[in-house]
Amino acid sequence: MDERERDKLTSLALEAAGGSESAFEELLTKTERTVYNMALRATGGDEHDAADLSQEIYIKLWRSLPSFRGDSSFGTWLFRIVQNASADRARKLAKERTVSLTLESDDGEEGREETDVVDLSPTPEERTLENERKEDVLRALNTLSDKHREIVMLRYMDGYSVNEIADILSLDEGTVKSRLFRAREKLKIILEKWNGFD
């Protein structure tokens, strides 16, 4: 996303804050894919939960739009809403998990904790070239340190600018640039080794 598109988001947000439904829908169209993927990562890849979380995020966005003044970038502001909504959901799930451990089944026997184990590995038939590349990228990302991975994901998967990343992570721009450079170089080397990335 370039600077012009970022400015457009800010002006749409201000328009939506004034009650414009069409501005809100345009804002949704421009951000929904990013938000959905952030929600997907927050819910461990569960599509159903990610869809629910996305809906919660946009309701929260609508409710808090009146307080958006355009002083910070809209992207940064939206990021915080996503963070808060994800944290709220995680807290709620943690509470529910605690409660469910003490539930008894109908016949009076103490219930056992059930954990759903979902095998996310694709079958050989499902592995396409595209999927292979995706998996390789994800595995490569996992080899990075947390701080490098975070910056790469914010920059390339969530589309945030260096300025916005600096704001989100409370770092100065120089630090973000140098971490981004190092993370990028590491990833390239790994991907090239695995797949001849070019």
Binding site: L28, L40, V152, Y156, M157
Partner: peptide
């Protein structure tokens, strides 16, 4: 583009 390709498309009807 490669990193962005890791992102999933929006499920149908979610918008």
């Amino acid at each position: 583009a490669l990193l962005d390709s890791v992102n999933e498309e929006l499920p149908e009807g979610l918008h």
